[in-house]
Simulated scan of single mutants.
Amino acid sequence: MRGAPSGPTGRALDVMELLGREPTARLRYVDIVQALGLNQGTAHSILKTLSDRGWVARDPVDKTFALGPALAALAKKADKARPLVSAARLVARDLAEELGFATSVIELVGNELLVLDFYRTEKSVPAPPPGLKVPYAPPYGTAFAAVATAEERKAWLARRATPSKAVGKALERALELSRERGYDVDWTTPAVAQLTTLVGSMDELHPTLLAAMDQILLEYTAPSFEESGANRPVTSITAPVLGIGGHARLGIAIHPISRIPARRIQACGRRLAEVTGKIGTPAASG
Rank of each mutant, 00 (worst) to 15 (best):
P5T: 10
S51Q: 13
I216A: 15
K48G: 09
S258K: 12
I252A: 02
I244K: 15
T281H: 12
P233K: 15
S224F: 05
G100H: 00
T149K: 09
P129E: 14
I252L: 00
D79L: 13
E204T: 11
P60M: 14
A174G: 01
A212P: 04
H206M: 08
R153H: 05
Y220L: 10
Y140P: 00
E227W: 06
P261H: 08
R270Y: 05
T64A: 13
A283T: 05
R271T: 04
V185T: 07
P282W: 04
V234Y: 01
R28H: 10
E98Q: 11
R120D: 15
S201L: 09
A284S: 14
D203L: 10
K76I: 06
E274C: 02
T49L: 10
S285C: 00
L242R: 00
V91P: 02
E22H: 15
L171F: 03
G131K: 13
I46M: 03
L90S: 09
R173N: 05
S124Q: 07
R89P: 00
P135F: 08
L84V: 13
F144G: 03
E219I: 01
P240T: 06
A262Q: 09
A143T: 03
V115R: 12
D31F: 01
A75Q: 13
A57E: 15
L71V: 14
V167L: 04
V56N: 05
A146Y: 03
H206I: 03
A88P: 00
C268V: 14
A222H: 12
G41R: 11
I265E: 03
T197C: 02
E227P: 10
I279N: 08
R89G: 14
K80C: 03
A283G: 11
A78V: 13
A143C: 05
Y140M: 08
V241N: 02
L157G: 05
V105I: 05
P60Y: 13
I260A: 07
I237E: 01
P139D: 08
G110E: 06
L108Q: 12
V61M: 09
P130H: 11
V109S: 10
P282A: 04
L171D: 01
P207T: 04
R259S: 13
D62Y: 06
G200Y: 00
L195S: 07
H255F: 14
Y140T: 01
G229M: 09
T121L: 06
Y119G: 05
P8D: 12
D186Y: 04
A12Y: 09
L114D: 04
